[in-house]
């Protein structure tokens, strides 16, 4: 399916069903990430239950520490 992520159109496997699985796909599951789906910000506890659908628009910001 096609998603818009951080302004770019991205093709991801159809077996990705939840936001948690999407974060795993991008290897972000170990990091602290803030996710917005279709302009709606998600609580971290909702990542495992929020569905990902074709055409969804995501903004994903993950935290890093360097300076």
């Amino acid at each position: 399916m096609k998603l818009s992520i951080n302004g770019n159109t991205v093709e991801v496997p159809d077996n990705i069903r939840t936001v948690s699985e999407l974060l795993q796909h991008f290897k972000l599951e170990q990091k602290v990430a803030v996710v917005e789906r279709n302009r709606e910000i998600l609580e971290k506890k909702d990542h495992p239950t929020t569905e990902v659908r074709d055409g969804d628009v995501f903004e994903i910001v993950h935290f890093v520490g360097g300076g």
């Binding site: 951080n6 609580e43 903004e59 910001v61």
Partner: peptide, 20 residues
């Protein structure tokens, strides 16, 4: 806004986080 970018992947993200 919480703002991030990746200059190599040409990505930019900006999220209004007040609700958190």
């Amino acid at each position: 806004r919480l703002t991030s970018f990746d200059l190599w992947k040409n990505e930019y993200a900006s999220i209004r986080v007040d609700k958190l």
